[in-house]
Write a protein that binds this DNA or RNA. Structure first.
Lengths: 348, 348
DNA sequence: CTGAAAGCGCTTACAG
DNA sequence: CTGAAAGCGCTTACAG
């Protein structure tokens, strides 16, 4: 225990706040203040401390800090999937805004399912709040989220008395515009909806809009006009093949519940010589980058993906900082984007 | 201070290990053991503790735990970008394996650039290790990574004496196969390379392979045969438009440095009546899902994206658990996948 | 197998 | 403006 023995390396071998304090000749409280409330420290002292921090390359231990402040500046993001155009863009938007506001993202494709993986729920307690995207109306998930001990924001699901902040998209207005557009040139009985499975919220709302517009035009949609399976290229292809085999993929219009389904249908049609849009008119959903890559370019309904991502980050940070404020409920618009795949007049 | 006063809620209002200990009538050390080293606790005690944990819905505070163990089971992932087919698939693969092994992912599109955002570096100290993907040969980044205090794995860059675990792809073998294929039916002087900017590592290696094969066939590639800008649909389109304006986009073969560039070129060609593959033969790179969506289907070079992601997770966990083991250097193969866009014989 | 005690590295009233 | 001290919620030798 010699007096000049420096403790720059304590017994764990890391540079701690104590090392900095010793080198700067102050108490650890002062070092902490320089970092957290610099205006409470005199300029001279602060300068010496900063220099010591720099020389020692000191970085505060975030576990110790989090233990006291209960904050990590990390936001948990739970998505049903990470794949595909939509989620990829959503992740970008989330990351962008989070980064701007000094937060980091902890991502998981199914973190809210407690039973799924061994380490699950493990890191969840490290986050300041949770953004959860829901696509199924199982009802189970949403309850789990609202009973979470953390601040939370739900994307994709809303319900009247829900005590959770929510962000949803108005599928119906965009979808109605798209179907009206198809009906303007194709008789209602020749219009088809190809969507995801029954439980999917978005697909369901898009289907509702489809049926509603057909009814408004005096036609009750038949079961044959509605096909549901999944949001995939393969499903679009499969559906189109079946229709082709039955000789039905001509002089019709299709409203697909997303762009991938639409492209599957379009490719099957082209491979079998059905012309788009003269014989098959088609509209997708999401307005992903794929739309402009397809030939002819795909008409679609624009999802405000970036807006959703930005709004979600802003919402969760608000809830983290004001946990007792009343949860808000945002609804973002969708808009029909007409391109070539539905454009040309269909003639009887 | 009444004896029966329960401290299920301590002054912070949370259920702590102390609450559990009191309810189960044991010490906090025993509660900790039940959670971490259950075999050191008698069955009966353990059962009582578990019941108390369940009744109180106790969840250990991960900040306190991390302060002691220095582990969070969180892996940091730093990518140059999150967008696009490649990164989307990579993220999936990373998340999948991490989840299987009980880890979570902290994602950031530029976390290793210290100067970029305010909260940067903030959460980095919460992770057990870092996976960094590099695409530029600036040399700056790689040094930063190797001097990191955390275990790290680098994707996309390797160098002889590097003291960091690395995972790279063998661009050259797949690229050579692709170019050989083009040369088998198109004269070397009519072959073109369209890639990303000079600094990009992958684009550079693919270009090298292109030049090498042309030379092997007795032709020194001219500056005109090589165009470089960025990995984008728009750049492909722009290049093709210029070639079209000069009347050069006929009877040629193009090796594009990724699928998006290839599709941009293909679309421009089609819109201006150039037939693929009879007049323009084209090969992309990455073998993304887009290849099969395009008509004609796009030939490409397969990147082992899932393998990269899985290998990266396994590597970083190995480094976390055995920090002193020698860093390994993996190199994964690429393979040429022939499809329609390069298939038909070109005739003079 | 169990408990008392020390301590991880910080923040924050509380005095001065 | 500054420091001594208490304490955040855990884990882990150390005794017993």
């Amino acid at each position: 225990m010699r007096a000049e023995e420096s403790s720059e390396n304590n017994r764990t071998g890391t540079v701690s706040i104590r090392s900095v304090a010793e080198r700067a000749g102050v108490s650890i409280a002062t070092v902490s203040r320089v970092l957290n409330t610099p205006n409470k420290v005199s300029k001279g002292t602060a300068e010496r401390v900063r220099q010591a921090i720099e020389e020692l390359e000191y970085r505060p231990n975030l576990f110790a800090k989090g233990l006291l402040t209960k904050r990590s500046r990390v936001i948990g993001v739970s998505l049903p999937d990470i794949h595909g155009e939509f989620y990829s863009e959503l992740m970008c938007a989330l990351d962008e805004r989070a980064c701007e506001l000094g937060y980091h993202l902890l991502v998981s494709s199914n973190a809210h399912r407690v039973e799924s993986s061994p380490g699950n729920g493990f890191a969840l307690d490290l986050v300041d709040g949770l953004i959860v995207m829901l696509t199924e109306r199982t009802g189970v998930d949403i309850e789990g989220v609202s009973q979470l001990s953390h601040p939370a924001v739900v994307i994709g699901f809303d319900e009247p008395g829900l005590d959770v902040e929510t962000i949803v998209v108005d599928n119906q207005t965009g979808a109605r515009k798209a179907v009206e557009h198809l009906l303007s040139q194709t008789p209602a009985e020749r219009c088809y909806f190809v969507g995801a499975h029954r439980g999917n919220i978005d697909s369901g709302e898009r289907l509702e809009a489809f049926c509603e517009v057909l009814r408004k035009h005096g036609h009750e949609p038949t079961g044959q006009q509605i096909a549901r399976k999944e949001f995939s290229f393969d499903w679009g292809w499969e559906w189109a093949e079946t229709m082709l085999d039955e000789g039905l993929l001509e002089n019709i219009a299709v409203f697909a519940a997303n762009d991938e389904i639409a492209i599957g249908i379009a490719n099957a049609a082209r491979d079998r010589g059905v012309e788009i849009p003269s014989s098959l008119r088609i509209v997708g959903f999401d307005d992903s980058q794929l739309c402009s890559l397809l030939r002819p370019k795909l008409s679609s309904v624009r999802m405000p993906v970036r807006e959703i991502g930005h709004a979600a980050i802003e919402a969760i940070i608000r809830r983290i900082e004001e946990p007792n404020s009343a949860p808000r409920h945002a609804r973002l618009a969708t808009t029909f984007v007409q391109r070539e795949s539905s454009g040309i007049t269909w003639t009887l």
